[in-house]
Amino acid sequence: MTFQNIFFNSQAAVVVFFVLSGFVLSPSFFNKSINVRELAGFYVRRFFRIVPLLAVVTALSFFYVKSAFSTWKVPFANSWFDGVLAHDVPLSASILVKCFVGMNSALVPQNWTIACELLVALILPFLVKACTGRLWLAVLTFIIATALSFIAADGGGKSLPVVYAVDFVVGILTFRILQSHDKRYSDVFFYAAVIGLVGARNMLEVLTGQVDLPFNDPLLSLVEAIFAAVIIYGLATKNHMSRLLSVRWLVWLGDISFGIYLVHFLVIVIVARLMTSFLLPYSLPTQTFLMLIPVLAVSLAAAYFAFRFIEIPFNDLGKSLQRRVRTALSRG
């Protein structure tokens, strides 16, 4: 379990994703007024950045779960795997619509993170203004967001946007600090933050005496968000690691990362079924390794295709519509 917590820490990856979102979206409203024109333009562009590719992956998942192919058994699978994109999963019209806009995880298991991203985006402009304004207001915003994350922790899936809103706030505060200081810190702090991020779960389990902290534990999320903020600040100030991460192939991976994130579950269940007869003679570790290669290859190829032919065109469309909305609203 310790090995998985460190090297397959999906919870920490989600926190980094939210902190980074708060950080990179802050310039949209930093030192800018909030009005209907700016808000409408921001919402339009955010929608076209996220939803089009999500809709395509959702449609592909829908056809998969309705197909006979999804009934193929995978003998070496566990109960978790059997529950991922299960054959003919019940889908009412309302659930299907929610799946296409990221508000239900029946067809895209990671949709709960998309829901957090989209719902927090509705108030993010106001969070940016609060966190980049007077210092007391920024501190108060952080305190309120932190308190709400603990209050909402036991509220189930619908409360997750409240639980993780504090991560966006941490990202916005990181941007504020960068704008105020923009000074490099020692690379030692960067690598210490990386170690802290990947080891936060084990550290808190030791300190609190809890075994296997809940995935959405608010204290764990907060601690990981702070470590993520230190990492992001270091990269933004051009530390040693930021130069290493600027090589072309890593930048390319960053460009297609959203597609990889959305498509990888669908790729895993398809590849497992296609490779079942080939994998059966091997042990579970060997099966995992043999599956890893085609899963990575297909995921990368699919994500590149999605980036080139879905994300870029719809991002451009979103920018164009954003300009048109702003122009239309400014005229009256």
Rank of each mutant, 00 (worst) to 15 (best):
I6T: 06
F8N: 14
Q11T: 06
Q11Y: 03
V15E: 08
V15N: 07
F18Q: 10
S21T: 08
S21H: 08
G22K: 11
V24P: 03
L25V: 03
P27S: 05
N35E: 09
V36P: 01
L39F: 06
F42K: 07
Y43R: 11
F47H: 09
I50T: 12
L54M: 14
V56S: 00
F62Y: 13
K66I: 02
A68F: 12
F69T: 05
S70Y: 07
W72R: 09
K73F: 04
V74Y: 10
V74A: 11
F81I: 02
D82L: 11
G83R: 10
P90H: 14
I95W: 02
V97L: 15
G102V: 03
M103Y: 14
M103C: 07
S105K: 10
V108A: 15
T113A: 15
A115W: 01
L118C: 11
L122S: 04
L127F: 06
V128N: 10
V128T: 08
K129T: 08
C131V: 00
R134P: 00
W136Y: 09
W136L: 06
I144E: 15
A145M: 03
L148M: 04
S149F: 05
F150Y: 10
F150D: 14
G156L: 03
K158L: 15
Y164E: 13
A165I: 00
V166K: 06
D167C: 07
V169N: 05
G171F: 11
F175D: 01
D182F: 10
K183E: 12
D187S: 13
Y191T: 01
A192Q: 01
N202V: 02
L204M: 07
E205H: 08
V206K: 14
T208Q: 12
V211Q: 15
F215D: 08
F215W: 14
N216W: 11
L219E: 13
E224P: 01
I226P: 06
I226S: 10
F227R: 00
V230Y: 07
I231L: 12
I232Q: 07
I232L: 15
L235P: 00
L235T: 07
A236D: 10
A236M: 14
K238N: 13
N239H: 12
M241Q: 08
M241R: 13
L244D: 11
L245E: 04
S246E: 05
R248H: 05
L250F: 07
L250Y: 09
D255P: 05
F258P: 01
Y261P: 02
L262G: 05
V263A: 14
H264M: 00
V267A: 13
V271L: 06
A272E: 04
M275V: 00
S277Q: 13
F278M: 04
L280Q: 13
P281N: 10
P285I: 15
P285A: 15
Q287T: 06
M291R: 12
F305S: 13
F307H: 15
R308V: 06
I310S: 08
L317E: 06
K319G: 14
Q322Y: 06
R326E: 15
T327W: 04
T327E: 10
A328V: 09
L329D: 03
R331V: 01
